[in-house]
Amino acid sequence: MQGVVKVNSALNMRSGPGSNYGVIGTLRNNDKVEIIKEVDGWYEIRFNGKVGSASKSYITIVN
């Protein structure tokens, strides 16, 4: 499943599904990500070869 980031500035990509996990990357508006699965309001995603988590509130699913 594919998604597109929708933010005003930037979205942190984290090492796990929650804001208490470390930041491993930064996503910008309109970045395209691969959604692997949903976990507690977060998506596990793949972006630029990295796997991490980002809040699903800022990612829109595209077909």
Rank of each mutant, 00 (worst) to 15 (best):
N29V: 06
N29F: 08
S57A: 14
V7R: 05
R14A: 06
I45M: 03
S19W: 15
S55N: 14
T60L: 12
I45R: 00
N8P: 11
N48W: 07
G18I: 00
L27T: 01
S9H: 14
G18A: 04
P17W: 03
T26S: 09
V51K: 08
W42F: 07
S19T: 14
N12K: 14
G22W: 08
G18M: 01
R46D: 06
I45C: 03
I59N: 00
V7T: 14
E38L: 07
D40C: 10
Y21F: 12
Y58V: 07
W42D: 01
V5R: 00
E44W: 14
I35S: 00
R46C: 12
S55V: 13
F47G: 01
S57K: 15
G52E: 02
I36G: 02
S19Y: 15
V7I: 10
D40L: 08
G41Q: 07
T60W: 13
V39R: 07
S15K: 09
N29I: 06
I45L: 08
A54R: 00
M13D: 04
P17V: 03
I35W: 01
E44I: 15
G25F: 10
N29R: 08
V5L: 03
F47D: 01
R14H: 15
N30M: 09
I24P: 01
I24M: 05
V33L: 05
L27V: 04
S55D: 15
V39W: 10
Y21W: 08
G25V: 07
N29Q: 07
E34I: 11
G25W: 08
K50V: 14
V62L: 13
G22M: 13
M13Q: 02
Y21N: 04
K56I: 09
G41V: 05
I35Q: 01
W42G: 01
I61M: 09
V62C: 13
Y43P: 00
K32R: 13
R46E: 08
N20W: 13
V39H: 10
V7Y: 08
Y43V: 04
D31N: 05
V33I: 07
S9I: 12
K37V: 06
F47N: 01
S53C: 15
T26P: 04
W42R: 01
V4D: 02
G18Y: 02
R46T: 08
E34N: 06
R14N: 07
K6V: 12
V33W: 02
K37H: 09
N63W: 11
E34H: 09
E38N: 03
V23R: 03
K56W: 03
G41S: 06
T26K: 12
S57L: 14
N20V: 09
A54K: 01
V5W: 00
P17Q: 04
V39Y: 11
A10F: 15
F47L: 05
V4A: 04
Y58M: 07
Q2D: 08
E38P: 01
E44T: 12
K50W: 08
M1E: 07
S19Q: 13
I59C: 04
K37M: 09
K37P: 01
E34P: 00
P17A: 06
D40K: 09
W42H: 02
N63K: 11
I35D: 00
V5T: 02
I24G: 01
S53G: 08
A54D: 02
A54F: 03
N20P: 04
M1Q: 11
Q2C: 15
T26M: 11
Y43S: 00
F47A: 07
S55R: 15
M13G: 02
S15M: 07
N8V: 12
G52R: 00
N63F: 11
W42L: 01
S57H: 14
S55H: 14
S19G: 10
G49V: 04
N12I: 14
A10K: 13
G41Y: 05
I59F: 05
I24Y: 00
I45T: 00
M1R: 12
S15L: 08
N29L: 08
S57Y: 14
I45N: 00
S57W: 13
I45Q: 00
L11Q: 09
G25L: 10
G18Q: 02
V5G: 05
S55E: 15
N29K: 08
N63L: 11
K37T: 10
Y43F: 10
I24A: 04
V33K: 00
G52N: 03
A10D: 11
M1S: 10
Q2P: 09
I36Q: 04
I45D: 00
V39S: 09
S57P: 07
N63V: 12
R28P: 02
D31S: 07
A54P: 03
S19F: 15
K32I: 15
T60N: 11
G16K: 02
S53E: 03
K37E: 06
K50M: 14
S9K: 13
V39T: 11
N63G: 13
D31L: 04
Y58H: 12
V4R: 08
P17N: 07
S15H: 05
S9M: 10
L11F: 06
P17T: 04
N20I: 10
G25D: 12
G16P: 04
I45K: 00
G18N: 05
K56H: 04
K6P: 01
I59T: 00
V4N: 03
I45Y: 00
T26L: 13
G49T: 04
S57R: 14
N12T: 13
R28N: 12
V7F: 06
K50H: 09
V39I: 12
T60A: 11
N30D: 10
Y43D: 00
D40Y: 08
N8E: 14
G52D: 02
S57I: 14
N30T: 04
K6S: 10
V39K: 08
N63A: 13
E44R: 05
T60G: 06
V4F: 07
N8S: 13
L11Y: 07
E38H: 04
V23I: 13
Q2Y: 15
N30Q: 08
K6T: 11
K56M: 11
D31C: 08
V7G: 10
R28L: 11
R46F: 11
I59D: 01
Y21A: 04
N48H: 10
N48T: 04
L27F: 02
S19N: 14
K6M: 10
V33S: 01
I59Y: 01
S9D: 13
E38V: 08
G22F: 09
V23K: 06
T60S: 12
E38Y: 06
Q2H: 13
G3N: 01
S53V: 12
K6Q: 11
M1I: 13
N48M: 12
M13N: 03
K37G: 15
S57G: 11
S53I: 10
G49S: 06
G49M: 05
S9G: 15
I61F: 06
E44Y: 10
N8L: 12
R46S: 10
N48K: 12
V4W: 06
G25A: 13
R28S: 10
N20K: 12
D31E: 07
V62H: 08
E34M: 10
V23E: 04
R46W: 09
Q2A: 10
D40V: 06
N20Y: 10
I24V: 11
K6D: 05
V4T: 07
S19V: 14
N8T: 13
V62F: 09
L27R: 01
W42C: 04
E38G: 03
D40F: 09
S55A: 12
M13P: 02
K37C: 14
R28G: 07
D40T: 06
S15N: 09
G49Y: 04
M1G: 07
A10M: 13
A54S: 05
E44K: 07
G49A: 05
P17R: 03
V39E: 09
K32P: 08
N12A: 15
L11W: 00
F47C: 04
V5P: 03
S9P: 06
S15Q: 09
I35F: 02
L27P: 01
N8K: 14
Y21G: 06
R14V: 08
L27H: 01
A54E: 02
V33D: 00
S55T: 08
V62G: 07
V7N: 07
Y43E: 00
N12C: 15
K56Y: 04
S55M: 15
N8C: 15
G18W: 01
K32F: 12
L27E: 01
R28E: 09
Y21Q: 03
T26W: 09
D31T: 08
V7K: 10
N29E: 07
G52M: 03
V62Q: 09
S55K: 15
I61N: 03
L11E: 07
F47M: 05
A10N: 11
G25T: 10
G41F: 05
K56T: 10
V4P: 01
K56N: 05
A10R: 13
V62K: 06
V23S: 06
K6A: 08
F47I: 08
V7L: 05
E44N: 10
T26N: 06
V4I: 13
V23L: 05
N30F: 08
Y43N: 00
A10I: 15
V23G: 00
D40W: 07
G3D: 03
W42K: 01
M13C: 12
V39P: 02
I61S: 04
A10P: 12
G18C: 08
N8A: 13
Y43G: 00
E44G: 02
I36P: 01
